[in-house]
Write a protein that binds this DNA or RNA. Structure first.
Ligand SMILES: [Zn+2]
Ligand SMILES: [Zn+2]
Ligand SMILES: [Zn+2]
Ligand SMILES: [Zn+2]
Ligand SMILES: [Zn+2]
Length: 485
DNA sequence: CTGTCAGACGCCCTCTGCTGGCCAGCG
DNA sequence: ACGCTGGCCAGCAGAGGGCGTCTGACAG
């Protein structure tokens, strides 16, 4: 028990001293999520920096800035509990932060503040020290008093007990070993322990042992209450909280409670933030607040579907759900099927079939990327000159589809070597990767009511006359409409 | 015996991504 | 009206960083 007490207390002190906010972990983005409430302004670290797009707010001052979005300003509107995010901020100095009030709390700490309840005694003792940094009126306390820095706030620490001071960041340690370990973590980045299976390396041997379990799947820490087993002890401890139903983290604005700190941070960002960056889908114009949800979106709507999706209203076939849904909309309302030979129109292929006004013809086309078209006034395939304007139109038609980049890359590689600027997300030279082309084209083709329109709109008249036979040809099905008569 | 040191252990933290329930919008 | 769908959301676990403390070996 003495151990536990000492540990908890030491931890609080250390983290107060460590003061990672300003120095920001050095090798990675600032990760500390402490919010410091000071004159209504909070510094909000640790926003996702991988986000793709920043939504423009209603106010035009949310202009693009060179500043990396590793931290944003968050202004609390006390009246409505909103937090406004801005891009330009000035960072509070650590001492300023120390004077601030923390916006985060844990339920346990709130209880320990009142110094009663049946909290684990040692825990209370550990946490009680943190109380002096908080006023009862404040809603929140940051776990472990993370932002508290000055030594005045660490009364048990005597000067001189940490004689080993880091020359690069002023952090002090009790032993030389701690200092050298700290230097490896923060400054030299020396990682003597290398994994033989992957590229991972670590500062400490124990970290390597822990890492190796991710390869072996070994789970030495079984839960006594369920079938779960963990790879390390702290994961099991975290898991056990799920059996108690305890929600240690509380949102200071709406008092919603959460099981994990990260959940609360996401909540605060998404629920109480304004101008919060969103993720834009690279394939469509959808903006999604969470990166993981964008992943779901990509899997559900933009992934290749092995089993072809057949449109009920026409011959179009799709391997991507999103394209299919877009296509379906074209059947809505308007009479998209028009006989090229008479005035008959209808909205569904089936009706056209009933009227014996539809048949489909297969044509083949080539695909080029914009760079290729740009660099080749007269692209050739199999020695045959192509109508560049027609091909250009062809490409422009398809340029929005990511998969076109794949094909484009393929065609460029054949003639010019790799193209460095186009990202690849599915394997090049994969026949599967080529299939969605049909879906793409089908979606586009629905904008034209007949082949004449298609030809005039995209200047395709020459396309179907070309003698094909190269690898990057694509079969398309163009609807022809005519009356049997 | 005592101090020092390296290695080991354990804790706490963050970031990340998946999952399934919820719910509003839409056909 | 109703079922479906897809974004929103909290729960949760995997992986890893950083550091306080313990422990055993060893030198003085
Ligand atoms: Zn340092
Ligand atoms: Zn490895
Ligand atoms: Zn369990
Ligand atoms: Zn809230
Ligand atoms: Zn999309």
């Amino acid at each position: 028990m003495g151990l536990g007490q000492g540990k908890g207390m030491g931890k609080g002190q250390e983290q107060g001293q460590g003061q990672r906010q300003g120095q920001a972990v050095g090798h990675s983005e600032p990760q500390v999520m402490a919010l410091t409430l000071r004159e209504g302004i909070c510094v909000f670290y640790d926003l996702e920096v991988t986000q793709i797009h920043v939504l423009q707010g209603r106010s035009s001052e949310s202009k693009a800035t060179e500043k990396p979005p590793d931290m944003l300003l968050m202004e609390i509107d006390r009246d409505n509990g909103a937090i406004a995010f801005e891009n330009n901020i000035q960072q509070l100095s650590p001492s300023e932060e120390g004077e601030g009030k923390k916006l985060f709390s844990t339920v346990g700490e709130t209880k320990s503040q009142s110094c009663k309840d049946n909290e684990n005694l040692s825990e209370m003792c550990n946490e009680s020290k943190e109380l002096e940094y908080t006023t009862a009126s404040e809603q929140t306390v940051l776990k472990n008093a993370k932002t508290v820095k000055s030594e005045a706030c660490v009364p048990h620490e005597k000067k001189g007990t940490k004689p080993y001071k880091c020359s690069e960041c002023d952090t002090a340690f009790v032993t030389k070993g701690e200092l050298s370990r700290h230097r490896r973590y923060k400054h030299t980045l020396e990682k003597p322990f290398k994994c033989t299976i992957c590229e991972y390396s670590s500062v400490e041997a124990s970290k390597m042992r822990r890492h190796v379990r991710s390869h072996t799947g070994e789970r030495p820490y079984p839960c006594a209450l369920c079938s779960y087993a963990s790879k390390d002890a702290s994961k099991l401890k975290r898991h056990m909280i799920t059996h108690t139903g305890q929600k240690r983290y509380e949102c200071c604005i709406c008092q919603a409670r959460f099981t994990q700190c990260g959940s609360m941070k996401i909540h605060m960002l998404q629920k109480h933030g304004e101008n919060v960056p969103k993720h834009q889908c690279p394939h469509c114009n959808t903006f999604i607040s969470r990166k993981s949800d964008l992943g779901v979106h990509l899997r559900n709507l933009h992934s290749y579907v092995e089993e072809a999706i057949q449109c009920r209203d026409c011959e179009a076939v799709f391997h991507e759900r999103y394209t299919f849904l877009q296509h379906k909309k074209t059947h809505k309302g308007g009479k998209r099927f028009k006989c090229a030979q008479c005035s008959y129109t209808c909205s569904q292929r089936s009706k056209m079939l009933e009227a014996k006004c539809l048949f489909l013809k297969e044509v083949k086309v080539f695909v080029f990327c914009p760079n290729y078209i740009k660099d080749h006034d007269s692209p050739t395939i199999a020695g045959k000159s192509l109508d560049s304007s027609a091909e250009r139109g062809m490409f422009m038609l398809k340029n929005t589809m990511e998969v076109m980049k794949i094909l484009s890359q393929q065609s460029v590689e054949q003639e010019e070597g790799p193209l460095e600027t186009l990202p690849l997300e599915v394997p090049v030279n994969s026949s599967e990767a080529m299939r969605p082309i049909c879906s793409c084209f089908s979606a586009i083709s629905t904008t034209c009511s007949n082949i004449q329109n298609v030809q005039s709109a995209f200047n395709w008249s020459s396309v179907k006359e070309i003698d094909f036979g190269e690898t990057n040809e694509v079969s398309l099905y163009i609807p022809y409409f005519f009356c049997p008569e």
